[in-house]
Design a protein around this nucleic acid. Structure first.
Length: 586
RNA sequence: GCCCUCGUAGCUCAGCAGGAUAGAGCAAUCGCCUCCUAAGCGAUAGGUCACACGUUCGAAUCGUGUCGAGGGCGCCA
């Protein structure tokens, strides 16, 4: 519909240019938007106000001229000049009812947009370090990323979902060592556990697994382990130094074989847990990308070489630095440490380059807001590699704070006092969690009300929308109970009988679905879809209360059933995109 | 100190490339079930869009500054 009206306006513009009313060279972006109220018709354009200066005539006069030259359309009832120079479009009934026909004809594909050209995009989200179970902080990124991916697919992009597994860093070494310490504890060795290590109970579980498989094979006495170690943090020593010494000690005593047993058991176990957790959350990935693979394949060196070739590297203090300041970052960054190891940042650069080299036109990253410091340096890296920085897009997701009984739920990773994503799902259901996480704009802090998410009441937007869907399903069940059938063909012919305000409002809103997908995709804003679905549910509930669908008149009945069936399909598709189920009954 | 995000009804938030009278939901008040699920609907009330300048036909929206909130600034990951 929108495209149709834009085309009409474009034709009118062409006439005006030919007549010399408008300068031929003036570049015209047709701007057409939904009106806020039906008093102003369905669509409005500010064209005349924008071009008034070029044309050298008052906006209202120009608006009138545009209207006079606009080709007739059987969908348009009339056009009017309004206010300071708006052109309002009032539509024929067939323009409304046509939406129902479209929707029913396209079924599940209604709202699926087609995009021309290559649009391969890789979308990376979650990418939590596999050092422990996902917690509620990861949940928002997961829900946001998964919903956004679905929206982009609906908007016609070819999307690849990717999780970057950081299986190569110091944190992983710390994890392996912590598992070993717990293992020794299970073997009966009394060894103090550093309070800056991973203290969660899941570490015991992994240690137990090693013990089941290997018995006491990797047991060493407390004396052997602690010999030569610096002071532990509990005893007043420096925590990080202590952990590094522990890592070195573990490698020394365990050898490569033993060390890998702990390392890999921890990694695989936690990663499997994360995969299960996300799958249960409806969050899927096409690729789990390992940082170790990245390094072993030579990609990191390849990226560093590229930076060097482009003249953005220099040596200082025995390390290799990237001249990020020349490219918009606030300070230069080390890529190869004094000890010869590459930094995490070097891997990031390599990973970005790798994505482009795999053929993606654009790499989208979803980070927690605490990573916003990465934006400038990654952009600098993109430039340093000689790539267009526009191909890198970083979306920041703000934090979510849980509230229970009106009070903030205290959480701290350090004390192990965090709520896991799994616990959240079990408490409020996956449906509620998925919806609540994305119902606010991603760049907005989120207050997550656990009690509301759990409540089965009209205050809970998830139930409100699901209930609209279930209500429609219920109507169709009642129809069957009355030994009647829905005849779509009869309904389609009788659509002109839909003349109630509630019916126009519902049709209008159904027609906004594709536009909503488009906007939500363009602005990376799943919350727009969440709000849209809520408004569609409102329209359905109002309609339901105002009018009976299952009426005697066969024509009217089937027309109304066509309308609510289209509504049901949009609700179901929209909820599906957000990862929320659309129940048949509640 | 420097940087990022944000500031809209009592509360939680929308406001989609600047548009017409700033919108929802909760909470408040008043109504609606012999009627397809009341997990619903209708009505009333509620605002200096943090503040000040600027850009223009027009600013909650764009720019600058001030105030306030949260976050980030390692040869950590």
């Amino acid at each position: 519909m929108k495209e149709h009206l834009e085309e009409l306006l474009a034709q009118s513009m062409l006439h005006l240019q030919r007549e010399g009313v408008l300068p031929a060279e003036s570049e015209i972006g047709i701007q057409l938007e939904r009106t806020r109220s039906p008093e102003h018709g369905e669509f409005a354009s500010n064209l005349a106000m924008v071009l008034a200066k070029d044309a050298g005539m008052p906006p209202r006069e120009l608006a009138q001229a545009i209207i006079e030259r606009t080709p007739k359309s059987r969908q348009v009832e009339r056009m009017e000049v309004a206010g300071p120079g708006f052109i309002n479009f009032y539509l024929q009934t067939c323009a409304f009812t046509g939406v129902i026909k479209d929707a029913l004809r396209q079924r599940e594909n209604y709202g699926q947009l087609v995009r021309v050209g290559l649009n391969r995009v890789t979308l990376e989200y979650v990418s939590a370090n596999p050092t422990g179970p996902l917690h509620v902080g990861h949940g928002r990124g997961a829900a946001y990323g998964a919903s956004l991916a679905n929206i982009l697919v609906a908007a016609g992009y070819e999307i690849q979902r990717e999780y970057y597994v950081n299986d190569n860093g110091r944190q992983m070494d710390i994890l392996a060592v912590c598992v070993w310490l717990r293992y020794l504890e299970l073997c009966g060795e009394i060894i103090s556990f550093p309070d800056n290590g991973y203290r969660g109970d899941y570490i015991y579980d992994i240690a137990r697994l090693v013990r089941v498989e290997h018995g006491d094979k990797w047991r060493f006495t407390r004396l052997a382990v602690e010999e030569g170690l610096p002071l532990s943090p509990q005893a007043g020593g420096e925590g990080e130094t202590y952990l590094d010494a522990l890592i070195a000690k573990a490698r020394e005593l365990l050898g490569d074989e033993g060390y890998l047993v702990f390392f890999n058991t921890a990694l695989n176990n936690i990663l499997d847990d994360i995969k299960d957790d996300l799958a249960d959350f409806g969050v899927v990935f096409d690729k789990w990308f390992s940082e170790r693979d990245l390094e072993e394949s030579g990609s990191v060196q390849h990226a560093i070489d590229r930076l060097g070739k482009n003249g953005y590297l220099y040596e200082k203090d025995g390390a290799t630095w990237f001249k990020a300041t020349e490219l918009g970052d606030e300070k230069d960054r080390v890529v190869i440490r004094e000890n010869g190891r590459t930094t995490y940042f070097a891997s990031d650069i390599a990973y970005f380059l790798n994505k482009l080299e795999r053929g993606f036109k654009r790499a989208v990253y979803i980070f927690g807001a605490d990573h916003h410091g990465y934006v400038a340096r990654l952009q600098a890296a993109a430039r340093g590699l000689g790539e267009d920085p526009d191909r890198l897009e970083i979306l920041l997701v703000q934090f979510a704070v849980l509230f229970r009984f009106g009070e903030k739920v205290a959480m701290s990773t350090r004390s192990g006092q965090f709520i896991t994503l799994r616990e959240l799902r079990e408490e409020v259901s996956t449906d509620a969690a998925r919806f609540f996480y994305v119902m606010r704009s991603h760049d907005q802090h989120l207050d997550f009300d656990l009690d509301l998410a759990k409540s089965r009441s009209n205050e809970n937007p998830v139930f409100y929308i699901q209930y609209a869907h279930a209500r429609i399903c219920s109507v169709f069940r009642n129809l069957l109970d009355m030994d009647q059938r829905h005849n779509e063909a009869i309904g389609e012919v009788a659509l002109d009988l839909l003349t109630q305000d509630h019916e126009f409002q519902l049709m209008r809103n159904i027609s906004k679905f594709p536009e909503t997908i488009d906007s939500a995709a363009r602005l990376r804003a799943p919350h727009m879809l969440a709000h849209y679905l809520h408004s569609l549910a409102t329209d359905l509930h109002s309609y339901y209360n105002a009018h009976q669908f299952l009426v005697e008149d066969e024509n009217l009945r089937n027309a109304r059933l066509n309308l609510v069936l289209a509504t049901k399909m949009v609700l179901s598709k929209g909820l599906g995109i957000l990862g929320v189920s659309a129940p048949e009954e509640m």
